[in-house]
Every structure is written in structure tokens, then in C-alpha cells.
Design a protein around this nucleic acid. Structure first.
Lengths: 338, 338
DNA sequence: CTGAAAGCGCTTACAG
DNA sequence: CTGAAAGCGCTTACAG
């Protein structure tokens, strides 16, 4: 029986193949694979049997052509080798998957211009949403995406883009807490360790921190390096501790730098933490909990961010900015006196 | 002029829209966007102008229906919060992108059964290849993928699956080196720290290590925990150092465990490394280079793996197993006497 | 509930 | 070089 033969090697079975084998119309097979369509139990069974035999799988690419829902989600990432980025991606992809969404990932690298090209690519896949975890796409490009019905969701990114969903941290509250923590620890000379090129979220941390510190009549010493890496943190600590007036409290803009600070302070300068020096980080990466660091920090609400992303993806894009503000809770460990 | 209006909001321009505006056929539009097709400079210019005006972007989903090349690549991952996994994914997505491939990522989580379902999903997207970084899909499923023309590429995974490209490490050479390193360091009592549930690549490391050690008339003490995490490494060290006959050399099956071992040995047991105790890891994750660890280890050839993946993706799948063996070089740092 | 038909947005022989 | 037409694999009103 010729009709019983599966399609030739190198090709997947199509709905037509299944229809032919099952002796029904192609509409019937389509219906048995779409939720809530009306098929009799009988034909459904016939279709399922034939599909099984031919190893049939609905072609989502083709389905996406007519159906809106099954369009993919694009995620713009970079620096996956950094713990914060990797952890965030882990949570987001997992959540998206539970919501039956498929993730295309675009690794934009360190080049800020790359974000623009990446967002443009996104259009090629008719993504229903693009989630920006890295880089800041230019406003005109974002507008174009929105016009085409794609939502653009910025996580911990620029605040000033219109037509965009923003998911970000309430840095004001977090930094108020941070300053209180240093005050309670009795720190007098406080340094802020950050990066010269600041993303909006780094900038927000810096500005609120400095402002709340000023309200206590303290002006922090500022150290800004080339990156937010572990090595930059080491360098920061070397330069700060070698100075005439070394700090007794250091706020690191992220945990990665804090890890570098800690290792250098302890091993190169023999400082005891938190007795001689208090260090505070931000992100709560996995390493912060390692006993070699035991870093007091603020926890990114990874799971809540992921959840907010999924919700934003589900909703139609609107012309209004929507802003979701999440809290970063302090995580008390051993690098701050309490 | 009605024809000059862009398509309504919420819809992207199609090739027909562009054709209409440019006053050419839709074939002409298609041709100006496919490499090596024959279009006159004149119509090409007209099309380009119209496309620009309408913000036209080729719909890759639709293109994939007729064209083979632009099909996506699926990557099965898990444990992105672990440095090795994240670093590997970073390299692979970057390399794939340079090769103009688009990556769909499927986060299979910790459930081994999930790999099967994930591979099945892969079929829905008519991926031209799926790259398995996590989990081990069952052989019949793999066979099905291959029959449909999809190549399956296993990175550091099971060795026994047919019809599959294997990219993996020459563990025999690496472990021969590992044993030599311990011998040269003068270690007498050697422990192996690993996980109870072994993936094929963990198993290979274990078996070669034990075999080469036996050739030196040494039988290592075996410690196997529930996972390959930092915390498991800590637990290993606690149990080993509290014993009657503590080791003077420890080979950790991966760097993450080694980090836990180091912190516990140094801080809880006040051991000096490498004087009192030598520790060797595997993977060369970023943390291994941190001064708090300074771990001697073997470097996964991340870049070469990524390159091999890209090459395998480009080639048509064959019925034969192809096996690419890569070298993991020792990286000398401070946890082994030299 | 079911099938024939039109449509989604593209590509690619086939004539001209 | 160019356009009309058929095809890729699906979905979804539209009649019945």
C-alpha cells in the first residue's frame, strides 16, 4: 500500500500525509491538534493513530504564519559568563517555557551598537515580544517594533524609552536601606565602587546611594573602573586601601566586583571583614552565598522578574509605558556588622 | 494615494506590500532579498526604496517553509546558573550567530525525562540541528530526528548513541596528566570527589583517573555526593578531613565542587593549599581564576567546542557516528605543588 | 462535526 | 532580467 509509506527520508510528515493515511481531510488533522476545536472522538482517534505512525509533529513555523499565539519570544542577552546574567536567563527561559513560549536567544555581545541590529533581527522572526536584558536599543527601533505589534520589554534597563514595558528594581528603597546598613554598622568613610560607563540601572543605584548618604552628611569616595568584573573589583580595593584615607565601608555596585574586593582586602591586605571593613554588594549571585565570600547583599528578585516578563509577553503591547517596580531585599551575611 | 499607505498598525509589511509600492512583482522583491538571485540594479533599487519606506523585513518563518537554510538550531540546556553551563552556552550562541544561525533554547531543567520531551519539541520547529548540552535523549527519539533530516549533536554527553555527532573531551589524555600531576606533587593518599549519579562524561573522568592511579599502585578514596554543586564540595571536604586517614590530594570532578572543597579546607579546617593538601579541578570556570581559589584545573576548550558545533550544524546528518575529540589542557595555578 | 477553499508570506522552477 | 503560477505546511471562516 503506497499510501501507508511514511514520507521519504529527510522530510518530516505533513498534515496532508496524516490526512491521507487516516482517510480524513487535512482540516480534520489540523483540528485535532488545535485546542478547543470541534472534532468527533472517532476521527480524532483515527488522526492520532495515523500521526503516531508517521511521527507527525505540527510545524510551528507554518502555524505561526496564520496563528498569532505561537510566535516566538526573542531574548537579547550578553555576558552570559557573568553570574547575574546567566541566573536571570535561567529563570526567564524556564518561566517562558512553562507558559508555552519558545525563546530565541540573541547574544548581543559587548558592543552597544549590536543591540540595534539584534532588535532588527527580531522583526525577521515576527517575535511577539522581545525581552531586552542587555544593551539599550535606540528609541526609533523600539517604536518600529511596537508598530508591528511586537512588545518590547526592558529588564533593568533604560528608563526613558517610550512605548516599552519596564521591569525594574525600586532602587530608591534599596539604596535607602543600603545607607541605613552602613550607618548601623558605624562606618564613617564610605566608598562607592562602580563602573565608568554606567547603564541606567547602575546609575540609579549610584545616584540614590549618594543622595541618601549626603542626607547623613557623608560624601562617599568614588571609584569607577572600566568594567563591573571581578578583576575590576580587585583593582578598586587595591587603590582604595593603599590610599591615605582608606574606607571602612564599601558599597559595590554589583556582587561580582564585591567578590574581587573581598579577596583582595582579605588576602592581599589582611583586612578582617566585617571588623575592619564592611562590604555590601548587589544582585545576590550564587557566589555571594559561598563561604569564601559570605557577602551581605541585595537579592535581585529573579523569580518575580521572570514572572513579570511572562505576564508582559501575554498582554498586547500598548502605546503607554507600563512600569513594574520590584523590590530587592537585603540578604544579611557576614560582610556587614549588624 | 492609497497604495502608498503602510500596512495597518499591528501588522508588518509583506513582500506584496513592497511589490505594490515599488511597482514590481512579488518575485522581484523576493529576489532582491535572496543572495545571488538575478535582479537588475534598477528594480533592485526600487524595491529597496519601497522596503525602506515600509520598514519591510523578510519573514524568516515563512522563508523557512520553502528554504532549507534558514531553519533554526535548538539548544538543550539546563542549570544555567552553573558557571560551566553558562560559559558553554555563551560561546556556542556567539559562534552560531556569527555563522548566521538562529538559536532556540530549551531549558530542560534537572529532570532527565525532560530531555526526551525537549527533543520532541525540537521537531516542531523543524530545527536543522539540535545541540544537546544537558540530559541524554533516548536513542529512538534521536533516530527519529535524524530520519527527518535533523542532526543531533551531543556535547560532552553519552557515547553510545548511534546516528549522532559527538563532540567530547579526550578524557584519557587528561586523566593521564591528572595522575602525573598528583605524582609529581608527591601526594600519597588521593581522594576522588564526584557525584553518585554520573553522566557519561563524569564517568569517563572517574574511570580513567582511577585506572591510571591503579597503574601507580594507588587506590583512591571515593566520595560521591548528590550533586556536583559547591555545597556538595563542601560536604565532601568535611567528611574527608574528619576521617582517620585524610587525603593529601583531592581530584574534584568539576571546578564547582573544587571551590567548595577549597573554602572548607582553608577556612573550616585551616589547611594550607598546596602545602598540606593539593586540589585539582576540571572545567576552568571563571571562578577558578579568582584569587580566592586560584585553582589548578583542566580547561574545557570552550571556543573549540563552539567551533566544532558550528561545523557540525553546517553538514548534512549522516548515518554514521562522527566523533570529534578535543583536548583539555591543564591550567597551572596555586592548588597543586609543582 | 466535516470538507473544500482561501489565505498566511515566502521561494523557485518555468516561460518569456 | 522578469512575472504568473505552483508550492511550502498550516489555520480558519464558510457551507453543508
Amino acid at each position: 500500500m503506497k499510501t501507508k509509506l511514511p514520507p521519504p527520508n529527510g522530510t518530516a510528515a505533513s498534515a496532508s500525509d496524516v490526512a491521507r493515511l487516516a482517510g480524513v481531510s487535512r482540516s480534520a488533522v489540523s483540528r485535532t491538534f488545535t485546542n478547543g476545536a470541534s472534532v468527533s472522538a472517532d476521527t480524532r482517534a483515527k488522526v492520532l493513530r495515523a500521526a503516531e505512525e508517521l511521527h507527525y509533529h505540527v510545524n510551528f513555523l507554518a502555524r505561526g504564519l496564520s496563528k498569532q499565539e505561537s510566535r516566538p519570544v526573542c531574548i537579547l542577552v550578553s555576558n552570559l559568563h557573568k553570574p547575574y546574567h546567566a541566573q536571570l536567563l535561567d529563570h526567564i527561559t524556564t518561566a517562558l517555557q512553562k507558559a508555552q513560549r519558545i525563546s530565541i536567544i540573541i547574544n548581543v555581545g559587548d558592543d552597544p551598537a549590536a543591540a540595534s541590529g539584534a532588535l532588527e533581527q527580531t522583526l525577521n522572526y515576527r517575535a511577539s515580544a522581545t525581552i531586552v536584558l542587555s544593551g539599550s536599543p535606540p528609541a526609533p527601533m523600539v517604536r518600529r517594533c511596537v508598530e508591528v505589534g511586537q512588545s518590547v520589554i526592558l529588564v533593568n534597563r533604560a528608563d526613558d524609552l517610550p512605548d516599552v514595558r519596564h521591569i525594574s528594581i525600586d532602587y530608591e528603597t534599596a539604596m535607602r536601606n543600603a545607607v541605613q546598613m552602613f550607618m548601623r554598622a558605624g562606618c564613617q568613610k564610605i566608598a562607592l565602587v562602580s563602573r565608568a560607563v554606567r547603564t541606567p540601572s547602575l546609575l540609579a543605584r549610584e545616584e540614590f546611594f549618594i543622595a541618601f548618604l549626603r542626607a547623613q552628611n557623608i560624601t562617599p569616595q568614588l571609584w569607577r573602573g572600566a568594567s563591573t568584573s571581578y578583576e575590576a573589583g580587585q583593582q578598586a580595593m587595591r587603590e582604595l586601601l593603599v590610599g591615605l584615607d582608606p574606607p571602612d565601608g564599601v558599597f559595590c555596585i554589583n556582587d561580582l566586583m564585591a567578590c574581587g574586593c573581598i579577596d583582595t582586602a582579605r588576602h592581599e591586605f589582611k583586612r578582617r571583614l566585617p571588623e575592619d571593613l564592611c562590604i555590601l554588594g548587589f544582585d545576590d549571585i550564587a557566589q555571594a552565598a559561598w563561604s569564601g565570600y559570605d557577602l551581605t547583599t541585595f537579592a535581585q528578585p529573579y523569580a518575580e522578574i521572570a514572572q513579570a516578563v511572562v505576564q508582559s509577553v501575554a498582554v498586547q503591547p500598548s502605546a503607554h509605558n507600563a512600569k513594574i517596580l520590584l523590590y530587592a531585599r537585603p540578604v544579611w551575611r557576614g560582610t556587614m556588622r549588624n
